[in-house]
């Protein structure tokens, strides 16, 4: 473990704003994509007129 305390870790040597913004935006991007896909899948199955049942 490199850090001495949680505070140090969050501060990132003074670069916390930039580092954490980067990681949070990346996390939000991936999460948003998964949620959007899940909703698209629900809609596609609802509109598929029973195709899913016949192939799975």
């Amino acid at each position: 473990m490199y850090w001495g305390s949680v505070g140090e870790f969050l501060e990132m040597g003074g670069y916390g704003l930039y580092v954490w913004t980067s990681f949070i935006i990346t996390a939000l991007g991936l999460t948003w994509e998964v949620v959007a896909l899940w909703r698209r899948r629900t809609a596609a199955i609802a509109d598929s007129r029973g195709i899913v049942r016949s192939i799975e």
């Binding site: 473990m1 490199y2 850090w3 870790f9 990132m12 040597g13 003074g14 670069y15 930039y18 580092v19 980067s22 990681f23 990346t26």
Partner: peptide, 24 residues
């Protein structure tokens, strides 16, 4: 990347952005 790796000599801890920036 965030907990074990040490800081960078020239860019200090801002270099840790590399762990999402370069893969993306």
């Amino acid at each position: 990347g965030l907990l074990v790796a040490p800081t960078d000599a020239t860019q200090h801890d801002s270099y840790r952005i590399i762990f999402v920036h370069v893969p993306a």
